[in-house]
């Protein structure tokens, strides 16, 4: 299965809640980037492992994550 996870990065507040619920531990905070709000945004480290469970999207308080699968 191929999955696609899209983050509305500009709106991420770097709260890290999404990183705690990923069963594959592939949602991480990208410390190399600072977004417009001044936070390190969340991203996916290895999309090939994603199972499109949408746990990260469900817990995101700011609803910035969209999950698709092919």
């Amino acid at each position: 299965m191929t999955a696609k996870v899209t983050f509305n990065t500009d709106r991420c507040k770097g709260c890290e809640l999404c990183t705690t619920v990923c069963p594959k531990h592939i949602v991480v905070i990208d410390t190399t980037v600072i977004n417009r709000k001044g936070y390190h945004p969340a991203t996916v480290s290895d999309i090939s492992q994603c199972i499109a469970c949408a746990s990260c999207a469900k817990i995101c308080p700011d609803s910035i994550i969209t999950v698709e699968k092919f």
């Binding site: 949408a54 999207a57 994550i65 969209t66 999950v67 698709e68």
Partner: peptide, 12 residues
């Protein structure tokens, strides 16, 4: 492609 989860229309 199928959308598994996206922001609800119930929020602005």
């Amino acid at each position: 492609m199928a959308v598994v989860y996206e922001k609800t229309k119930g929020l602005t």
